[in-house]
Every structure is written in structure tokens, then in C-alpha cells.
Computed example of a mutant assay.
Amino acid sequence: MNALTDNALMLKVKAGDLDRMGLLFERHYKPLFGFLYRMTADRESSEDMVQNVFLRMLKYRHTFKGDGEFRTWMYHLARNVLNDHHKGNKRQAGPLEQVSGQVADEAPESSMDKEEQLHLLNRALNGLSEEHREILVLSRYQELSYSEIAEVLRISEANVRVRIHRAMARLKTVYLKLAD
């Protein structure tokens, strides 16, 4: 049963086998939450939005054709939920919260440097425009291919490459300013 692809599972859901949605939820909850959290920096809202994405999957299951990647369709729905969230809140997300499992006195110097670098990177990422942050999260954190990102954003692959290049350059600039 677990050997079914995401597309095959979603086609079964589309055909009325709604129990298969649970397996899709198990497979995609964490990456979807990660995407939404990196876009909002709000744990509670991200949890709610994941639920909304899966509700929309059920509601709009008739739109899934099965000829494209399931993940692409899922992230397209997630972007719509995220846009609705932003419209409802009418505010930009605050700085990303960095949760640390170590106490400063107990951490070795090199570990603190890595933790500090990660914190700076998260702050720099949050300092980007939503467009730049989204494309970097999709490519670097969610590991979508350029062609998948092009489908999700409904732009060309060449445009994806350009946007990623620009976003990375902007991220580097913001990171270096924060590191000074």
C-alpha cells in the first residue's frame, strides 16, 4: 500500500477513496509545514495553513489530473492558502524564531559559530521580499526542481533560474550586512 506514488494515491482520492488522504498527509505534512513556516515565521498559523491545504486538496480533488507532479499541485494550493493568509492578516511576518536546543555556556565555540550563522541566515532570509524568500524556500529547503518551481509559480524555467540567482545575490547582501 505504501508503494503507491503520490499521483496514484491522489487519483484514488479523486475517485472517492478518501482514506488514502491520510497517507498523503503523513508523507507531506513536514515538508509542507516547513515551507509555510519559513514563509510566515508563525508556527500556529503554519499548522492551520497545512490543515487548510489538505482540506483544499479534498475540496478541489477534481482538478488533479495526474499528468503532472503531485507535489507541484500541492505547493500551488499551499501558495493560494498562503496568499489568503496574508490577505487576512495584512501584515508582514516578523523575524524568524530560531529555536536552540543548546545553552550558550555548554556549547563549544565552533557549535556556537554554526548556530549564530544559522540564526543570521534565517534573519537574512526573513529580510528578503516574499518573492525572493519563496523561491529560495522552494528550491533550497523544499528541494523542488526548477521545472517543478516553474509549474508552481507558472513561469518559465529560465525565469526560475534568474529569480533564484537574484534572490541568492540579495540573500548574500542581507546576510553580510547582518554579519557586520
Rank of each mutant, 00 (worst) to 15 (best):
N2K: 08
A3E: 12
D6I: 08
N7M: 13
L9R: 14
M10I: 13
M10G: 12
K12F: 09
K14Q: 15
G16W: 01
G16M: 00
R20V: 11
L24N: 07
H28Q: 06
Y29W: 10
P31I: 05
L32R: 00
L32T: 00
F33L: 14
G34H: 05
L36W: 03
Y37C: 05
E44T: 05
S46F: 02
E47G: 06
D48C: 09
M49W: 08
F54D: 02
R56K: 11
L58F: 15
L58A: 11
L58E: 11
K65M: 10
K65V: 08
G66T: 05
G66W: 04
D67P: 02
G68Q: 15
F70C: 04
R71T: 12
M74K: 04
Y75D: 01
H76P: 00
A78R: 04
R79S: 12
V81G: 04
L82W: 08
L82E: 03
H85R: 05
H86G: 11
H86P: 05
K87A: 10
N89I: 05
R91A: 13
R91T: 14
A93C: 11
A93G: 13
A93D: 10
P95N: 14
L96F: 02
E97R: 10
E97Q: 08
E97I: 09
S100H: 03
G101P: 05
D105Q: 09
E106K: 11
E106T: 09
P108D: 14
E109N: 07
K114R: 13
K114G: 05
Q117L: 14
L118H: 15
L118T: 15
H119C: 06
L120Y: 12
L121H: 00
L121V: 00
L121N: 00
R123E: 12
G127N: 04
L128T: 02
L128Q: 01
E130I: 11
E130T: 13
E131H: 12
R133L: 07
V137H: 01
L138P: 06
L138Y: 05
Y141E: 15
Y146N: 13
Y146F: 09
E148W: 00
E148D: 07
I149G: 07
I149W: 04
I149V: 13
A150I: 06
A150N: 03
E151C: 07
L153R: 15
L153Y: 11
I155A: 02
S156Q: 05
A158T: 13
A158K: 12
R163F: 04
H165P: 02
A169Y: 04
R170W: 00
R170P: 00
L171C: 10
K172F: 02
K172Q: 08
Y175L: 07
L176N: 10
K177Y: 01
L178C: 05
